[in-house]
Amino acid sequence: MSALSVVETRIFDLLLFGYGLSCLLYLIYLIVPRRLTGRAATSVLVLCLVAHTAVIVLRYAEAQRPPFQTLYESLSWFAWTSVLAYLFAEWRRKIRVTGVIVTAVATAACIYANTLPHGVKPLYPALQSVWFFWHVSVAFASYAIFVVAFAVEVSYLVAARQVRRGRGLAYGLDRDSVIVFHRMAYNLILFGFPLLTFGIFSGAAWAETAWGRYWAWDPKETWSLITWTVYAIYLHAKVTPRWSGGRASALNILGFICMIFTFVGVNWLAKLLGLQSLHLYAV
């Protein structure tokens, strides 16, 4: 194990603790909404992001390639992009109440990554392409945005329920301020959807260059299309009066589940059912 690997592993272990602590602080903030607790949660998360950036840079230096080949690296990258997207959204839109969900997702991704082999692998010949960077980074950018959209949507559902029960004032929420969450989730998905489209098409273009066919109904490809379809349904639902409320929220949550399944679930499914897949590099 190289010196870089040792440093990286130690920082990653600390990250687990950091993300967990941040999640806890966001949870406390949700229960007792004091500004100090919220600021502490954000500060810890910013520190975690800085440390995680260091992990990514070290990995890049060690592997001499973008750090998202193995499942360990992909999960780490996923957590990093999700936190980055969330902190940007929190800075722009003051959505601190959604932090607990994003940090829970990031913590879960890091815990799962920690159970996997950390070793650096060279790139397989099929992955040695300019598409490797663009396909994976853009797809993960869309995933990160969908994580934040999911968190905002769940917050909306919970907050709307509290407002309906007359408990919204304790959090400074009324009907109008709650609906902002729902609109923001829509805007986030509107932003993430073209990125997901680019991710899928760049994957198809890459497959055409590497294997000679752009689409083979491989489980990973099919699940990415399922995710795309669910988000397309969501976007259509938002312009249909009867569907733009609770049903759209449900579709957003379903889209998130499909996205997570595309990312990690397909690998389990392929193993469980003995399915053939050309996308099992990231295991």
Binding site: W217, P219, T222, I226, T229, W243, V266, L269, S277
Partner: peptide, 27 residues
């Protein structure tokens, strides 16, 4: 738009089935 939603949902369900049942052309 409702029919669009319905058709897209149907396509998604069929695709889902196609990832659970092994597809012969894939191997």
């Amino acid at each position: 738009t409702k029919i669009s939603l319905f058709l897209l949902a149907l396509l998604a369900i069929v695709m889902l089935v196609g990832t659970i049942v092994p597809q012969l052309p894939l191997g």
